[in-house]
Design a protein around this nucleic acid. Structure first.
Length: 523
RNA sequence: GGCCCCAUCGACUAGUGGUUAGGUCAUCACCCUUUCAAGGUGGUAGCACGGGUUCGAAUCCCGUUGGGGUCACCA
């Protein structure tokens, strides 16, 4: 067999991640194209790159791959970076943070790619191709019809590189200024091999690889070309990216070989999947991190959740909730699985609840205050704004509601009766609980409350029980109507605590109002 | 279709030759209970299949099946 075998191997080590690379600082990157929003799969890729870099005391950088002008979206780059920062993923180097390896935007590195392309051309590892897209398409159809592998037919491969095109023809086209692309010349029958940090050894046969376009006719490089050059020049030690890049590995490896560069280590992450196990896509639900932000998921929950999709601590660990710092200290590529993972929103929601239950009250108050204040301005509240927008009052509401809320914003929506009088009374609950004897009963109890100075949960409870017992009634006959009168709904926190927080004045007013407004069901 | 990757409960996963196959979400039942939650207890549910290797395979090898990715002047 002629040609060269291109073999890049990594020693198989138990501690692949932790092996310090001969004094070399670990550098990883996230290289999105600015086509709009941040995909949750992209978030996970960025996260793993970040975690790995930080775990190894290395640097994490963001590079923007905008070599496709037609797909450029305004502000996408800024959004991408700010969404990552929201998630707690802060780059050491990026277009906006700067760094010593810039520019970090590929469209600003065009001359670099041109220079390296010239080198490839000179070394006869690449060649000009003047085939039009129509020709290529025609060729593709023809091959498809013959059940052949659609592949470039090497029409413009020069004679001196083993093709059929005379040098003179190429020169003529060039002189005419005809549009062209530059293609890499893939050696015919060699084996390209590497060791993936997650998947182990993988081998490809060069015969199945197309002569990939390196430079497009608009003078921009293709992804394959630009990323290899940048990954080398920016001195990344580890390339951690999605599994969808696995099939283009041989092209990339060949480029490293052409340039005589030592390739970095590669780790191809399993894909994030739709419920039907296809690649996570927009069609089957939300895929943008922004979508989840909008729904009210917190950065903590999303990061935690996405981290667990493909990675686990192992060794019998049963921990489900991880902070970013814990993730950094525990993450390792060895513990990343090979199989795709379905993005299961239910578990995300469960995680969100876990965070709501443990988040410091002050922090929640701080988060809901602006929303609440806007609402208070819009509708006039029942009680004094000073009181109900005080940290003290809000803290009490949060304390009562935190175990019954799914998102932080629900503290405002589910708790509206802590700020506004109920506008209506839940019909079903009224039908079931507001029996004909209730108005008189509740009226009598209200008078009792009014006469008392101690409006605490304990005392209200004691009063209610003492009130109801001699009548031979169960507390429930009063508890439910009181809840309806005070909140208008049948679900909520502990009644006594709810009443205490609402305060005597508001509670009495609401009871009176309920008696007036609720029609007792006909017995 | 070619090439490549993958395969433990419905979902996320632990497991690296000997386990009653463990945990979490979801689900079901019960308990707690003034509602709704939360919490507690328990249950249903899984090694895709077939061959090997071995005293012994979820674990190692091969094949089959299934799923996915990728085959652009998109990334």
């Amino acid at each position: 067999m002629s040609g060269f075998a291109c073999r890049h191997s990594l020693p198989k080590s138990q501690n692949l991640d932790l092996r310090t690379m001969a004094g070399q600082k670990v550098r990883t990157r996230f290289a999105p194209s600015p086509t709009g929003y941040l995909h949750v799969g992209g978030l996970r890729t960025a996260l793993y790159n970040y975690l790995f870099a930080k775990r190894m005391n290395g640097d994490f950088v963001i590079r923007i791959e905008d070599t496709d002008q037609s797909r450029r979206v305004e502000d996408a780059e800024k959004n991408l970076i700010s969404t990552l920062e929201w998630a707690g993923i802060i780059a050491d180097e990026s277009p906006i943070h700067g760094g010593n390896y810039g520019p970090y935007v590929q469209s600003q590195r065009l001359s670099i790619y041109r220079d390296y392309c010239t080198r490839l051309l000179e070394d006869k590892n690449a060649y000009y191709c003047f085939s039009t897209s129509e020709e290529l398409e025609e060729n593709r159809q023809l091959q498809l019809k013959q059940a052949l592998q659609p592949k470039y037919n090497r029409k413009w491969l020069p004679e001196e590189m083993g093709g059929n095109m005379p040098e003179s023809e190429i020169k003529k086209k060039l002189d005419e200024g005809a549009p062209y692309v530059v293609r890499m010349k893939v050696p015919d029958y060699i084996s390209v091999w590497f060791e993936d940090m997650i998947r182990g050894p993988i081998e490809f046969d060069s015969a199945t690889i197309d002569d990939q376009v390196l430079m497009k006719s608009d003078g921009f490089p293709t992804y394959h070309f630009a990323s290899v050059i940048d990954d080398h020049l920016m001195e990344f030690t580890h390339i951690i990216r999605g599994e969808e890049w696995l099939p283009s590995m041989p092209k990339h490896l060949l480029l490293y070989e052409f340039f005589g560069w030592e390739p970095p280590k590669f780790a191809h992450l399993p894909l994030l999947l739709n419920p039907d196990r296809s690649k996570l896509s927009k069609r089957q639900g939300d895929v943008a991190v922004e979508d989840y932000m909008r729904k009210g998921y917190s950065n903590e929950a999303i990061v935690n959740f996405v981290a667990l999709l493909g990675w686990n601590e192992g060794e019998g660990s049963e921990q489900e909730v991880f902070s970013m710092d814990e993730l950094i200290s525990k993450f390792s590529l060895e513990r990343v699985g090979k199989a795709g993972a379905v993005f299961n929103v239910e578990k995300l929601s469960w995680l969100e609840k876990q965070y709501i239950k443990t988040r410091p009250i002050e922090k929640i108050v701080e988060g809901i205050k602006p929303v609440l204040q806007a609402k208070l301005a819009e509708f006039s509240p029942e009680m004094s704004v000073e009181r109900i927008s005080s940290d003290d009052y809000l803290g009490k509401v949060v304390e009562l509601m935190r175990e019954r809320v799914n998102f932080e914003h629900e503290f405002v929506t589910f708790s509206s009766y802590f700020f506004f009088e109920p506008e209506s009374y839940e019909a079903e609950a009224v039908a079931k609980r507001w029996t004909p004897e209730v108005p008189a009963l509740i009226q009598e109890f209200a008078e009792l409350l009014e006469a008392s100075d101690d409006f605490t949960a304990e005392n209200i409870e004691a009063q209610l029980k003492a009130f109801v017992a001699p009548k031979g009634l169960k507390p429930a006959v009063l508890i439910h109507p009181l809840r309806i009168a005070a909140s208008g709904v049948s679900f909520g926190p502990s009644l006594y605590h709810m009443l205490e927080v609402l305060g005597k004045e508001a509670v009495l007013r609401r009871i009176r109002r309920a008696i007036e407004r609720i029609e007792a069901p006909v017995a």
